[in-house]
Write a protein that binds this DNA or RNA. Structure first.
Length: 599
RNA sequence: GGGGGCGUAGCUCAAUUGGUUAGAGCGCUGCCCUGUCACGGCAGAGGUUACGGGUUCGAGCCCCGCCGCUCCCGCCA
C-alpha cells in the first residue's frame, strides 16, 4: 500500500502514529526555516510539516522545490498542532504530520489556472476548464458533483431493485426512426450504404421488453439527440428510463414519488412530501402560462375575458370577439420597471405574434398606462379587486387566443420573477423544491402548415379511455395518458401509459396521424407485429438524470454534473473531437465526403 | 437557421470612452524569512489586446469580416 490513511482521516486520536499519505500538493507555505505543505486527495487535505532541524538537507530542499499539484507520498508521525495554530476550517485542522520521508511521485508543470483557490477557480473561463477538464475535476465543487451523481445513481438502482425492476441494457446501435429529434448515424461497414442510428431514447426497446414479459425494466440509459444545445441539453445525456406492465398512471406516480423521495433524502437529507400535486395541462396554462410551472412564487395569471367581452378598448374586446381571452398578472412591487424592461417584455409578446404588451404601473396613487383611459369604471374596479392592485404594482395583459395569451404571460411571469429576484424583492430558499405532476395533456396537436394532427408526446401514448370515441370526431379534445413530473419549473421527466391494443394503435397511425400503412410498416412494423402476440398493458417514464443532478447540486448547467461535457457547438475541447478521419476509414465505410475539410 | 453577451499577461480583471512606454492582484522566477494555512517581505520576467482587414495623424476602444466560448428563440416525437 502506498498510503495508510487518506487526507481527511487524521484526528487527535491518531497522535503518535507513523502514517503515510499520498496526494497532490494543494498549497505550499515556505517560511524559510520551515515548510508547510497541504497534501490533498479526493477526501480532503492534511497539513504536513518539514522541519530542517531533524531532516536531511536534500529532503528539505526537495520539499522546497515542490510546486502546486505535484504528486507526492509523505511519511511521518502525527502530532498535535502547537497551541493556537489549529485550523478550524478543515476537519484535520487539529493535527499535522511531521514528515520524515518524501517521495515525489510526479512533478506538475505550472498550471494553466489555479485549482487551490476556490474563489478564483470558480470564476475561471469555462472554455479553459473544459480544455483542462482533468484539472477542473480536482476542484472540490466538481469532485462533490460527481460524487453526488454517483450516490444518486446508486440510490436509484437500489430503490428500483427493491421495487422488483430488472436493469437491462438496450442497444446503442439502433435503427433510424426519422421522427422527433435528429439522430446520429453510424455507417455500417459490412452493409454498404446502410446506417445504424444512436437511440434518442430506448423507447421502442423498453416496450418490446414488456411484450417480452419482463414486467419491470429500468436503465440509466445514454441517449443521443443531434439538436442544438442549451445549458440543460447535451448531445448525449443520461436518463432514468423505466417501464412497467399491468399498471395504471397512479402506479407510476407512486413509484416515481417514492424514487424522488429516496433520491432527495440520499443526496440532500431532505424529506420530500408525497404525493405530489396533480395539475392538469389546462390548469397549468391557465394559472402559470406554462406546462412546467414554477409554483415557488405567486404572480398567477387571472382571467378577464368576461369583464372585457364588451369593452370599449378594442384590442381586448376584439380578441374576445374572435374567440380569444384576456388575461393579466400582477407583478407586485415592479412599478419601478424601466422602459427597457417593458420593451424586452414587449418583444417576448411579439415573439408570440402579439401586437404589443398592455401594462399599468401603479405609482403615486395613479394608474399610469397608455390604455387605462379606455377602461370603464366597472372594468377598473374588477381589475383592482381580482388582481388585488396596490401602490407599486405592475399589471401586464395579454389578449389573444387562449394558448398564446397564456404562454405570453407565462414568459413574462418568469421574466418579472427574475427582475424581482435581482432587486431582492423575491427570495426563494435554496432548499425549497416544489414537485408536481402535470397531467391530461392533449393527445394531439395540430400542425397548421402541414394541415394534419401530430402526437404531442409520441404515437404510442394511450388516449384517456373515455376519450377514445372522440379520436375520429373531435381529436383536439382527446386527452393522452401522458404525465410530466416538474420541480421548480424544470421538466424532470415525462412518460405515458402506452397503447397496447393493435386496433387503437392502427386507428392512431392511419386515421388520426394519417401515416400511410406502408410507411407505418416500414417504421414501426416490428412493434405492431410484436403487439399482436400478447402485449400486456404497460406504461413508463424517463427522467433526465443530468438535470436531476444539476438541481440537486444547485447549478444551472448540466455541464457541471457531467465529467466530460461538450460545448454548445458539440465539440470536446480536451480531445478536440469531432475530427477528420483518414481516407482509408471513409473508404472502408463506403463514404464519400463532399464538404471541404476545415484547416 | 436567428438574436444577445463575452474574448486584454498563465488566471481574474482595469485602461479617465480615440491620445505618451497597455496597468493591478494572484500565479511564475530569484533573494530573505522557524508556526503558516489566501503566509509575509524585496526584486524581476511576462502582452501580435482571439485572428484578418479598414477608417484615422493616432485604434484595446470605431467599422467590416472571421474564429472560439456562452445565453436565448427556432429545434428537442
Amino acid at each position: 500500500m502506498k498510503r495508510t490513511h487518506h487526507c481527511n482521516e487524521l484526528r487527535p486520536t491518531h497522535i503518535g502514529q507513523m502514517v503515510t499519505l499520498t496526494g497532490w500538493v494543494h498549497s505550499r507555505r515556505d517560511l524559510g526555516g520551515l515548510i508547510f505543505i497541504d497534501v490533498r486527495d479526493r477526501e480532503g487535505r492534511t497539513q504536513t510539516v518539514f522541519d530542517p532541524s531533524d531532516l536531511p538537507k536534500d529532503l528539505f530542499e526537495r520539499a522546497a522545490a515542490l510546486r502546486s499539484e505535484c504528486v507526492i507520498r509523505v511519511a511521518g508521525k502525527v502530532r498535535q498542532r502547537p497551541e493556537g495554530t489549529n485550523n478550524p476550517k478543515i476537519p484535520t485542522g487539529a493535527v499535522e504530520v511531521m514528515v520524515t520521508e518524501l517521495e515525489v511521485l510526479n512533478v506538475a508543470d505550472v498550471l494553466p489556472f489555479p485549482v487551490d483557490d476556490p474563489e478564483v477557480a470558480s470564476k475561471v473561463n469555462e472554455e479553459l476548464r473544459l480544455r483542462y477538464r482533468y484539472l477542473d475535476l480536482r476542484r472540490p465543487e466538481m469532485a462533490r458533483n460527481l460524487r453526488l451523481r454517483s450516490k444518486v445513481a446508486m440510490a436509484t438502482r437500489q430503490y428500483l431493485d427493491e421495487q422488483g425492476f430488472l436493469e437491462i441494457e438496450t442497444p446503442l446501435l439502433f435503427k433510424s426512426t426519422p421522427e422527433g429529434a435528429r439522430e446520429f448515424l453510424v455507417p455500417s461497414r459490412v452493409n454498404p450504404g446502410q446506417f445504424y442510428a444512436l437511440p434518442q431514447s430506448p423507447q421502442q426497446f423498453k416496450q418490446i421488453l414488456m411484450v417480452g414479459g419482463i414486467e419491470r425494466y429500468y436503465q440509466l440509459a445514454r441517449c443521443f439527440r443531434d439538436e442544438d444545445q442549451r445549458a440543460d441539453r447535451q448531445l448525449e445525456f443520461t436518463q432514468i428510463d423505466l417501464e412497467m406492465s399491468f399498471i395504471e398512471r397512479e402506479d407510476i406516480y407512486t413509484l416515481v414519488e417514492g424514487m424522488l423521495k429516496r433520491i432527495w433524502k440520499t443526496a440532500l437529507n431532505l424529506d420530500v412530501p408525497t404525493p405530489f400535486k396533480r395539475i392538469s395541462y389546462q390548469e397549468a396554462l391557465n394559472r402559470w402560462g406554462i406546462d412546467k410551472p414554477d409554483t415557488r412564487f405567486g404572480m398567477e395569471l387571472v382571467d378577464f375575458t368576461e369583464e372585457f367581452r364588451a369593452s370599449k378598448f378594442k384590442v381586448f374586446g376584439g380578441a374576445v370577439a374572435s374567440g380569444g381571452v384576456v388575461k393579466a398578472l400582477n407583478a407586485k412591487g415592479l412599478a419601478s420597471v424601466t422602459q427597457g424592461q417593458i420593451d424586452t417584455m414587449t418583444e417576448y409578446a411579439k415573439g408570440f405574434g402579439a401586437k404589443g404588451l398592455a401594462y399599468i404601473k401603479v405609482e403615486g396613487g395613479e394608474w399610469k398606462s397608455p390604455i387605462v383611459k379606455f377602461f370603464s369604471d366597472a372594468e377598473k374596479a374588477s381589475l383592482a379587486q381580482k388582481l388585488k392592485i396596490e401602490e407599486g404594482d405592475l399589471i401586464l395583459f395579454a389578449a389573444d387566443q387562449w394558448l398564446n395569451a397564456c404562454e405570453i404571460l407565462g414568459e413574462i411571469r418568469r421574466y418579472c420573477a427574475n427582475l424581482l429576484k435581482e432587486q431582492g424583492k423575491l427570495t426563494i430558499p435554496a432548499d425549497r423544491f416544489d414537485f408536481l405532476w402535470v397531467v391530461d395533456f392533449p393527445l394531439l396537436s395540430f400542425d397548421k402548415e402541414q394541415n394534419r394532427w401530430y402526437s404531442s408526446h409520441h404515437p404510442f401514448t394511450a388516449p384517456v379511455a373515455e376519450d377514445i370515441p372522440m379520436l375520429k370526431t373531435d381529436p383536439k379534445k382527446v386527452r393522452g395518458q401522458h404525465y410530466d413530473v416538474v420541480v421548480n419549473g424544470v421538466e424532470l421527466g415525462g412518460g405515458s401509459i402506452r397503447i397496447h391494443q393493435p386496433d387503437v394503435q392502427k386507428t392512431v397511425f392511419e386515421e388520426v396521424l394519417q401515416i400511410p400503412p406502408e410507411e407505418t410498416k416500414l417504421r414501426f412494423g416490428y412493434m405492431l407485429e410484436a403487439f399482436r402476440y400478447g402485449a400486456p398493458p404497460h406504461g413508463g417514464i424517463a427522467l433526465g438524470f443530468d438535470r436531476l443532478n444539476a438541481i440537486l447540486c444547485g447549478t444551472p448547467s448540466i455541464r457541471d454534473v457531467i465529467a466530460f461535457p461538450k460545448t454548445a457547438k458539440g465539440t470536446d475541447l480536451m480531445t478536440e473531437s469531432p475530427a477528420a478521419v483518414t481516407p482509408r476509414q471513409l473508404r472502408d465505410l463506403h463514404i464519400d465526403v463532399k464538404v471541404a475539410k476545415k484547416d
